[in-house]
Structures are given as C-alpha cells and as structure tokens.
C-alpha cells in the first residue's frame, strides 16, 4: 500500500506542475455565473474528463505491459482471449508481481528509466526530448482544445477535460510508464486514479480562486514531485534488475 501512498503524494506535489500548465485552462473555464455550486460542478466535470483519460491510458498501459511480459504465451488468438487466459493474475496489492518473467523485468527497467528521464525533465533538464513526444497531430490537438475552450456548454467542458488529458505532460508519461511496469490492468488503472485524484484538489481550487500561485512555491513543489517520480523510477528499475530483493 505504501507505494500507492507515494503515488498519491506525488500526484498532489505534481499538481503544482499542473497548476502551471493546465491551471491556465481551469482559470479560462472560470466561474459559472449560475453560482458556486455550478462553478464547482463545471470544474468537477473538467477534472473528471481529464482524469478519465489518465485512467484509460493507465489501463491500456497495464494491458500493454501485461501483453509484453507474457509474450512467451503468444498464440494465434485474439488479444481478448489472452486477457482471459490470465484472469488469475490477481496480484493487485503489490506494485509488481512477486515473480517476474524476463519480459516483465525488461519492461520494469525501461519504464523505470523513462520515469527517471521524466523526473529530470521536471527538474528542467533534457528539454530537447520533447521532440520524442511531438506527435504529428499535436497541432490538431491544439486546435481542437482551443475550439472547445471557446464553447460554453457543459458537455464541452467535459470534452475539454477528455482532450486535455492527452496533452503531452512529463508527469503523466512518468505515471503511465509506471502503470505499464505494473503489467496489470487493474493496478495500472489504480495508479492513474491515485495520481489523478492527487491532482484534483489543487486543480479544483485553482478553478475557484482563478489565480496562479507564486511560481517559487510551485517550483519547489514540482521539485518534490520530480523527486518522488525519480524515487519510484529507481525502485522500478531495481525491481527489474534484482527481482529477488522483494519490497
């Protein structure tokens, strides 16, 4: 369980990064003229959309991790059947299953490295790496978000949150890598739920206050988030390299 607490705390600390980046959107969504409850509702919708995307990506990463780490079982069946075959994987309480296959160990090392790289990005290093995450469609994503931001309807707010979740973000990528390393849908989702919920308070607050906190405080918080992610990343790598050390 302690791992999950780390993730949740990293989410809270990381949300100071979110305040900087996505906080602008929260401010832009602004205050609903219909009152405080309506404002809260609007921001809950937006954040729900955002976190749903995170959870979805976490779930997919978990499935992908599972598929990679069980590749010795590849047979001409649909992926759904593969999922069924491993229905007994109920190791949900642990970050990683106790016994690791080779695929899983490689996955853990790669994911851990990714997390370390992301934490370095949060510290302000390796900025050039963003090219790696520059999808061809990023301009389209920008245009879509802009269009939605200008629309005032409630459903647009939710849709905005959904798309917002796909914006490139080192924090999200780090946790998705972590979710993939867990090699399980359920834990992949849980990781992203916790991370997402961690970002909730700050993002809701920022929507209500409508003001960005002093950047020095935010900078420190982002460092803390970076440290947490680096820690998680290093633990993941170590687990991949020395699976017998336990936790």
């Amino acid at each position: 369980m302690s791992h999950y607490i780390v993730i949740f705390v990293a989410g809270i600390a990381g949300s100071f990064h979110c305040i900087g980046m996505c906080g602008g959107f929260a401010c832009a969504l602004g205050v609903d003229p219909a009152g405080r409850i309506a404002t809260l509702y609007r921001h809950l919708l937006y954040n729900t959309g955002r976190v749903t995307t995170y959870i979805f990506m976490g779930g997919l990463a978990g499935v992908a991790g599972q598929a990679i780490s069980t590749q010795e079982d590849v047979s001409p069946k649909t992926s759904m059947e593969i999922m069924h075959n491993h229905s007994t994987l109920t190791n949900i309480g642990t970050l990683l299953p106790e016994t690791l296959s080779t695929g899983q160990r490689i996955l853990a090392v790669v994911a851990g490295l990714l997390m370390v790289v992301m934490s370095l990005q949060l510290f302000g290093y390796l900025q050039r790496l963003h090219i790696l995450f520059t999808g061809l469609s990023s301009n389209t994503l920008v245009r879509s978000l802009r269009t939605l931001l200008n629309s005032r309807s409630r459903s647009a707010t939710l849709a905005f949150g959904v798309f917002n979740g796909f914006l490139p973000c080192p924090l999200v990528y780090a946790f998705i890598a972590h979710a993939a390393a867990s090699a399980n849908i359920y834990s992949g989702m849980i990781i992203m739920v916790l991370f997402g919920l961690g970002t909730f308070p700050a993002m809701i607050l920022i929507g209500g206050i409508g003001q960005v906190i002093n950047h020095h405080w935010r900078k420190r918080a982002v460092w803390v988030a970076g440290l947490f992610i680096m820690l998680l990343g290093l633990i993941t790598i170590i687990r991949g390299l020395f699976p017998l050390t336990g936790h």
Partner: peptide
C-alpha cells in the same frame, strides 16, 4: 519550458478558429 506548455499556450491564446467544429 516544455512542449506541453507550448501547446497549452497556443490553445489559450491562439486566435479563435473553426467555431463550427466545436
């Protein structure tokens, strides 16, 4: 500082485009 911020800034401050696509 990062590519994400670059995209986000363009979303917020770019000129309004294609309202019919909303």
């Amino acid at each position: 500082c990062c590519y994400g911020c670059c995209l986000a800034f363009q979303v917020k401050n770019g000129s309004r485009e294609e309202p019919e696509a909303a």
